[in-house]
Design a protein around this nucleic acid. Structure first.
Length: 409
DNA sequence: TCTGGGGTCCTAGGACCC
DNA sequence: TCTGGGGTCCTAGGACCC
């Protein structure tokens, strides 16, 4: 049996690089890709901007303060989607087993490709070449026996890096590596582990599993093996992904809102976005949740279980509205979110009654019209123009196809 | 004139049933 | 008057990821 070999490809400053590629005036300059909404954050900073300390997640003012000459570019999701699809097509030439992990990252199973494409170094060089020639973009590539280490490797040299970790080299690498560098160990776990005297992967890998398990539950079982650089998680090739488990949309309002009528209209818009996307993919949910965020960032969501599975905008809206009406708002609201979950494939849940069938027909017509004439041409109730300009930032949970191919205008 | 949006997985506690 | 345990469903919330 051939030894598993996994490649992780991480596009360098993806959105910013695509913008610099398509607009020569931006090349070599500090730029930050942002959303078009009023309260937006930096999605990606170019390497020139990063040198000034501009980071993902900064708001515009923080970013401007870090780098006064920073150029803000409003992101163009369709451009990134098209580019991502082309990258995946290039990867397809090298292996059929590709996991589109996010819009700018992919795992490729390159086990046993040696006879076709040469050594891992040669293969990585060929892929980098194709991406550079065809798209004018650079990427960092990590190659290792599993996904955990491949991801770590691609992160070790940026931009345009290539790092290979082998079974033989991993122990020396992990010995002094901070645990927080590992994929899946975030700030909180780093803190808790630190309090236990565990700071490096070497220490984590040598720690008694029983204690980790006791302290961290099911995650604890994995932690020790992660510290040892072991990971059995499989590549999930494109087209073999599991069905989505939830479908949702949320929006940060241009300004905090306390008027319930306005909040209701946003809930309607979000319900329609959720319903339309779920219907497009024939998914129905049995639970609806409404999320509210207050100006102090206190965020909570309340869910309600429905008697049957639905993807009907009206049902989603009414349920979310019921949740809202049961709340006493603490203050003005900053963010509103609506999602459905506990998902079933729609065809498994045929409507029982004629009324429901008629409603479904109506929704189908509405959806097809909206598809031709743009979102929200037709919808339940009134959606005012004032909301049309709200634009989102593309989700990294994005997939080239299926329900996760969200493209918020 | 602060702090986006879309996800997954896990845990804990309470209701309810046998 | 005091004593269970197991199982499922449900909700809320947190950690993590890009």
């Amino acid at each position: 049996m051939k030894a598993p070999l996994i490649m992780h490809i991480d596009m360098n400053a993806f959105f910013a690089s695509v913008e610099q590629r398509s607009n020569p005036e931006l090349r070599g300059k500090p730029i930050a890709v942002i959303g078009s909404a009023k309260r937006t954050v930096v999605t990606t900073a170019s390497y020139e901007a990063r040198r000034f300390g501009v980071k993902t997640g900064m708001n515009k003012w923080e970013a401007r303060k870090a780098c006064p000459s920073l150029i803000f570019v409003i992101g163009d999701n369709q451009k990134y989607i098209d580019t991502s699809v082309r990258i995946l097509a290039i990867l397809k030439d090298f292996s059929p087993r590709i996991e589109a992990y996010s819009i700018d990252e992919a795992f490729v199973d390159i086990s046993g490709t040696g006879s076709l494409f040469g050594s891992p170094e040669t293969l990585a060089a060929s892929i980098k070449d194709r991406i550079r020639k065809d798209l004018g973009l650079t990427c960092s590539i990590g190659i290792a026996p599993n996904k955990l280490l491949a991801k770590l490797a691609s992160d070790m040299k940026k931009p345009d890096g290539l790092v290979i970790i082998t079974e033989e080299s991993k122990a020396a690498l992990l010995r002094d590596l901070p645990v927080g560098e590992l994929w899946g160990i975030g700030p909180k776990l780093t803190m808790h582990l630190g309090a236990m005297g565990i700071r490096t992967c070497g220490q984590l890998g040598a720690f008694p599993e029983s204690i980790l398990r006791e302290r961290f539950g099911i995650i604890g079982e994995r932690l020790k093996s992660m510290g040892q650089g072991m990971d059995a998680s499989p590549i999930v090739p494109m087209g073999e992904e599991e069905e989505a488990k939830s479908v949702g949309h949320s929006t940060t309002l241009p300004a905090d809102v306390s008027d319930k009528a306005v909040i209701r209209r946003y809930i309607l818009k979000l319900s329609e976005m959720v319903g339309a996307r779920a219907r497009r993919h024939n998914l129905k949910g049995r639970k609806v949740s409404l999320t509210l965020r207050y100006p102090d960032f206190y965020t909570f969501s309340t869910q309600r279980t429905l008697p049957s599975y639905t993807n009907d905008t009206h049902s989603i809206y009414m349920t979310a509205l019921n949740i809202l009406e049961a709340q006493r708002l603490r203050s003005a609201v900053r963010l509103i979110g609506v999602s459905i979950f506990d998902i079933a494939k729609g065809s498994l849940q045929m409507p029982l009654f004629e009324e429901d069938r008629k409603k479904e027909k109506l929704l189908e017509v509405m959806d097809s019209l909206n598809m031709h004439f743009g979102e929200f041409t037709l919808t339940w109730g009134t959606i005012f123009e004032e909301y049309e300009s709200e634009a989102g930032v593309i989700s990294p949970a994005w997939r080239p196809s299926g329900v996760k191919m969200v493209n918020v205008k």
